[in-house]
Design a protein around this nucleic acid. Sequence first.
DNA 1: TCAAAAGTGTTTGCAATACACCCATGC
DNA 2: GCATGGGTGTATTGCAAACACTTTTGA
Lengths: 230, 230
Amino acid sequence: MKITDTENIIEPLSVDCVIFGFEDARIKVLLIKRSIEPEFGVWALPGGFIRYSENIEAASSRVLKERTGVANVYMEQLGAFGELDRFPLKRVITIVYYALVKPGKYKLNAGPDASDARWFNLSELPYLPFDHEKIILASLARLRRQFKYKPIGFNLLPDKFPLLKLQELYQAIYGIEFDKPNFRRKIMKMNLLVPLDEKQKGVPHRSAQLYKFDKNRYDALTETGFIFEI
Amino acid sequence: MKITDTENIIEPLSVDCVIFGFEDARIKVLLIKRSIEPEFGVWALPGGFIRYSENIEAASSRVLKERTGVANVYMEQLGAFGELDRFPLKRVITIVYYALVKPGKYKLNAGPDASDARWFNLSELPYLPFDHEKIILASLARLRRQFKYKPIGFNLLPDKFPLLKLQELYQAIYGIEFDKPNFRRKIMKMNLLVPLDEKQKGVPHRSAQLYKFDKNRYDALTETGFIFEI
DNA sequence: TCAAAAGTGTTTGCAATACACCCATGC
DNA sequence: GCATGGGTGTATTGCAAACACTTTTGA
């Protein structure tokens, strides 16, 4: 977050990214190790300043790409955080985006102001600088609400997945268990999943049918008044 | 929005307020008539620049008070809007708050850069400058979702109200009709309303029981896992 | 043959829906 | 009396929850 080109950036305005992943039935957050002061060497949210020539979402995409190598993912704005003392050196207001990343899609690649990047379990976050913990918790709260009425969970799963993985994702998000037969029925009745000509391989039990999410079908249903809800 | 004190403000960062009201069974938005260029004389959202010494929410409260006289109302951040061309003179990113105002609470009082303030029906909005229409529609979309799982509607009603007013509010928000007996039961079963020792007066029909929303009870229920949902 | 997950069927009870109906008040 | 909204009662239906059960695969 060193200011190298003061002509180019909007001084007191940064973006920060909360990047969520899902693996081993747990929700993860991607953090980078800061390579500049303040808080040198500390795990933190990837962030950077906004440039005059780019809109906010573009800034967020750029920062995400530069700092972590992650690109082309689902991204949405959470909001602005601007407490007077949130950043020690000067007044910086940050606009936060959260992103959902499919497993395998990301190729970790620390950028100029980070010497490393790593996934952390939500329940095992390290010390975080500034208001980053507050930001992550706010992102999670928003994510939980979004999961209820938008099929965004598919952005955290591979393109092909068995139903139980979807269930495990919802269980991880809400922190509760669902009944398998009932969850199945509820999902299948929505008509958003397409069964593929493919099954799981190499699992030590009956192999599961794989499905993919059909976004076109979802959009069409939405037009007719359908409301996704779990 | 004239910059009179460039030392004091964060140059490219403003706040804008979407103020919702409810009267005659219709959702309203409070707009002010701009008294400076650009878009002089045009109805617009009340807005202003953020100062270095105030946090964002304080800026929003201040702007709201200065421009319209409205104070002490329910307010929540919608998010940041920052398209490159949203404001013609220069790059301005704005952080939007939406507010809910009880009828009678507001005393209209146009501020320094507005010669007037007025309520408009959502369905009869005038021409709006910049991205203000987009902002209002985004606020409304957020409001609709919030209404589903948070009892914020009470911030649009007087402290004492009959059940039918609450129903009319939900009908205006969602644009659909509810069955009266069923709506009643649903609300009453939640145990959030306290019947008062008071009834409607001077109405040309049987006078209705008045209720008030019990926030303490709501908070207590929320702690025990209760989830408000309509 | 056993463990583990895939997948189906069925019963039960609650809650949303859709009404029909009576009550109070002002004009 | 009548229009208008206040307020209660009830039959029906749909669906979520609970759980018992069969199937398939690898080791």
